[in-house]
Simulated assay, not measured.
Amino acid sequence: MAILAVFIPVLMLGVVLALGRYEDFLLPGDQDPVNVEPAGTRPISSRGAAGTPAPSP
């Protein structure tokens, strides 16, 4: 029983690592991370978020 308690987690770790490698093989990521825009950024426009602001009195 003690042998199973040692080998089952080790085998499960091997399976998880193997699946991770298999996923990287099937779904390769972007090879050029330098030109990737960070998530959550918005493009900068010449107009504000609400368009042209009203003139101040």
Rank of each mutant, 00 (worst) to 15 (best):
P57F: 10
S56C: 00
P38G: 02
P28V: 03
L27Y: 15
A18F: 03
V36Y: 03
G40Y: 08
D30S: 07
P55A: 12
L17Y: 09
I3S: 08
V6F: 11
V6E: 12
G51L: 04
V6S: 06
V36R: 13
F25V: 01
V36W: 02
G40K: 10
F25Y: 15
Y22N: 00
Y22W: 10
P43L: 08
Y22H: 04
G51S: 04
R47T: 06
R42P: 00
A2F: 14
V6T: 13
P53Y: 08
A50H: 09
A2N: 14
A2M: 09
A54G: 03
P9T: 03
L26N: 04
F7V: 14
L19V: 04
L27M: 07
V36D: 06
N35R: 13
G20N: 06
V34N: 09
P53E: 02
E23G: 03
N35E: 06
P57I: 02
G20I: 02
P28E: 02
M1K: 10
L4Q: 07
N35H: 15
P33W: 10
Y22V: 01
L13Q: 07
V16R: 12
A5D: 12
M1W: 11
P43I: 05
D30I: 09
V10M: 11
V6G: 00
L17Q: 08
A54F: 13
L4V: 05
L19M: 13
V6I: 15
E23V: 11
P33I: 09
L26W: 09
V10P: 01
A18W: 01
L11R: 06
S45W: 14
A49E: 13
G40F: 09
P38I: 01
F7R: 07
S45Y: 15
G40P: 05
T41P: 00
V16K: 07
E23K: 07
A5Y: 12
Y22E: 01
V15N: 02
E37A: 13
V34C: 00
P57G: 04
A49D: 09
I8A: 06
A2S: 11
A18P: 01
A2C: 03
G20V: 03
D24R: 04
V6W: 09
G14H: 06
L13W: 11
G20W: 01
L13N: 05
G29W: 11
S45K: 14
S45A: 11
S56A: 12
G29H: 14
D32T: 12
F25D: 02
I8P: 00
A54C: 00
G51R: 04
Q31L: 10
D30G: 06
N35Y: 09
P28Y: 02
P57W: 10
P57L: 02
I44S: 03
D32S: 09
A39R: 11
S46V: 11
I8L: 14
M1P: 08
P28L: 04
R42K: 13
S56M: 07
L26S: 02
R42H: 06
D24H: 04
R42W: 04
M1Y: 12
R21N: 04
Y22C: 00
F7T: 12
E23W: 14
G20C: 03
